[in-house]
Amino acid sequence: MTPMLQTAGLGKHFTLHLRGGLTIPVLQDVDFHVAAGECVALVGPSGAGKTTLLRSLYGNYRADQGSIQVRHHGSMVELARAAPRLVVDVRAHSMGYVSQFLRVVPRVPALDIVAEAARGLSPEEARDRAAALLLRLNIPRRLHALPPATFSGGEQQRINLARGFIGRHPILLLDEPTASLDAGNRDIVVSMIDEAKAAGIAIVGIFHDVSTRDRVADRTYSVAPLQDAA
């Protein structure tokens, strides 16, 4: 199996300068990997650092120790403490991310938010695929032209999912993708994840809902809380 993402000795702490330099270690010696076509679920109690790990993998949080190797343009590149330009390029071509919250320019229509995340498509193709994805996620056509600011939490989450899946990045990170979805939409997301895996996409996810996790995850990786060093 082709390794897509691999960490070694990954460590992350937060230093809170506004609270007298309080240091909170969150991750230590994380050795983690995911291969093409595989889905790994991060598990552990709330506050253990699952989201911190996921964000560190994406470069959203700065990894303090260790390495994060990512398959990018056919070879493994080091992402921990990499130049911002490399991270931008990896995100553009190799790694997608679905966050819990939708953060976009306020007045952009939902369809455009999704379409502009597509890779290697003409604007028309991108809009067609975006529309198809939104419809599949039960976002009716009348909502496509509206900015999602006023949408419900579940609808915003599905916009976010469409935005994450449209790019078909070889690596996809999912942070609670089904948290605010009903059973029907959860099933759709599960089938989308299955299809992505079948297409060889490596997936790392945090799934709050155990039944969903059991349906999609090939294995789990346990994130244990560290003792507070402060």
């Binding site: 937060f14 230093t15 809170l16 300068h17 506004l18 964000r55 470069g59 959203n60 949080y61 700065r62 911002p84 991270v87 931008v88």
Partner: peptide, 17 residues
């Protein structure tokens, strides 16, 4: 650094403020 990294994981005291 990277915009979202600096804003979501600020390292310097002034940036955190």
């Amino acid at each position: 650094g990277l915009t979202d990294q600096v804003l979501d994981d600020p390292q310097h005291a002034y940036t955190q403020l």
